[in-house]
C-alpha cells in the first residue's frame, strides 16, 4: 500500500517534469550560444495547438509531435530574424513572441476546443518495468518521457564532448573572438535558437497530446516561464536542469498527495502550492551558490546583440 503510493508519486513526478526538461534543455542550448529567448510560453502554446491539431486530423501522434516541433521552430525563426538579422532587443522581442504565441494559438485552436484525443499507452520495457517501486515510474512511461532522457544525454554529449558544441559555447562566450577565427556567429545562433524553439514546440505537444490530452486556450499555464527560470537557476548546467525539473514536479505532486490523504497539516494550501517554486529555487540556489561556477557557466554574451564587422 505505502509503496504503491510512492510509486504513483514517482510516476507522476516524472510525467510532470518531462515538458519542463524538454523545453528547458532547448532553451539552455539557445542561451549557451548567447541568445536569450523569453518566448518559450508562446512557442509551447504554438507547439501544443499544432501537435494537437495534426494528431487530431491525421490520427498520427508522431506527425503531431513533428508538427509541434515545426511550429515551435517557426516561431523561434521569426524571433531569430528579428534579433539576429534586424538586431532587435532580445528581451522585448521574446516577450512579444510569448504574447503572440499564446494569442495566435488560441485563435488557431478555436475549432479544436471541443475535441479530445485518445490517451496514449505507455511503453513497458519488459522485466525492468516489473522492478518494485521504481520499475513503473522509470520503465513504463509514454514515449516522449524516454525522449527527454535521450535528449538530456545528447545535449550533454554535444555541449561538452563534441567540437560543434565547443564552437557553440565559444560563440556564446565571445562572439567577436569566434567571428575573428572564422566561425559564422550569426548562423550558429540561428541554429541554436531554432533548436530551442523546436524543443519548446515538442514540450507543448507533450502537454496537449500526451499529458492532458486536450486543447484549451492557456493550457500551457506558465510552464514556459518556469522552464526559462529553471535554466537560470540551474546555472546553465544540463544535469541541474534535470534535477530542478523533477524537483519542481515532485514537490507539486507530493503536495497534492498530502492534501488528498487527509493528513493533519496546519499549512495553508496556498503555501503548499507555492512550495514547488520555493523548493526549486532554494535548492538550485544552494547548489549554485559558488560564484565562480556561476560565472564559469553563464554565457557571457547572453542577450547582447552581435554585429560582425564586415
Amino acid at each position: 500500500m505505502e509503496s504503491s503510493i510512492l510509486t504513483s508519486i514517482l510516476f507522476a513526478t516524472i510525467v510532470a517534469g518531462t515538458p519542463l526538461i524538454i523545453v528547458a534543455l532547448g532553451q539552455l542550448v539557445a542561451e549557451k550560444s548567447g541568445v536569450l529567448n523569453l518566448g518559450a510560453e508562446g512557442m509551447m502554446s504554438m507547439g501544443a495547438i499544432a501537435g494537437f491539431a495534426i494528431t487530431f486530423e491525421t490520427g498520427s501522434v508522431w506527425l503531431g509531435v513533428l508538427g509541434g516541433m515545426a511550429a515551435g521552430a517557426l516561431m523561434s525563426y521569426l524571433f531569430a530574424v528579428v534579433v539576429l538579422t534586424l538586431m532587435g532587443n532580445q528581451v522585448a522581442t521574446g516577450l512579444a513572441l510569448s504574447i503572440l504565441g499564446v494569442g495566435l494559438s488560441a485563435f488557431i485552436g478555436k475549432s479544436y476546443e471541443s475535441e479530445i484525443l485518445p490517451t496514449i499507452e505507455a511503453i513497458r520495457i519488459p522485466l525492468l518495468a516489473d522492478i518494485p517501486i521504481i520499475g513503473e515510474p522509470l520503465f513504463a512511461q509514454q514515449s516522449l518521457v524516454y525522449f527527454s532522457w535521450a535528449l538530456f544525454g545528447a545535449i550533454v554529449w554535444f555541449l561538452y564532448r563534441s567540437r560543434p558544441g565547443l564552437v557553440l559555447r565559444a560563440v556564446g562566450e565571445s562572439p567577436s573572438s569566434a567571428h575573428s577565427i572564422g566561425y559564422p556567429v550569426i548562423r550558429i545562433r540561428y541554429l541554436a535558437t531554432i533548436f530551442g524553439g523546436a524543443m519548446a514546440g515538442i514540450g507543448g505537444a507533450f502537454l496537449s497530446v500526451f499529458y492532458t490530452p486536450l486543447w484549451v486556450e492557456g493550457m500551457v499555464a506558465g510552464r514556459g516561464w518556469i522552464a526559462i527560470a529553471l535554466v537560470v537557476f540551474a546555472t546553465w548546467r544540463p544535469f541541474r536542469v534535470l534535477v530542478g525539473a523533477y524537483l519542481f514536479g515532485g514537490v507539486m505532486v507530493a503536495q497534492l498527495f498530502v492534501q488528498g490523504s487527509g493528513l493533519e497539516i496546519n499549512i495553508p494550501s496556498q503555501f503548499l502550492s507555492s512550495l514547488p517554486y520555493l523548493a526549486t529555487i532554494i535548492v538550485l540556489v544552494i547548489i549554485s551558490r559558488d560564484q565562480n561556477t556561476v560565472r564559469l557557466n553563464a554565457p557571457v554574451s547572453l542577450g547582447q546583440p552581435y554585429r560582425p564587422d564586415a
Binding site: S8, A12, A16, Y211, L256, Q259, G260
Partner: peptide
C-alpha cells in the same frame, strides 16, 4: 479534497484527479 489554487490549469487539475 485537493486544492490546486488555480481556476484553470488543466495539467495540474489532471494531476490532482489522478492523485
Amino acid at each position: 479534497v485537493i486544492w490546486v489554487n488555480s481556476w484553470f490549469d488543466p495539467g495540474k487539475e489532471r494531476q490532482a484527479a489522478l492523485t
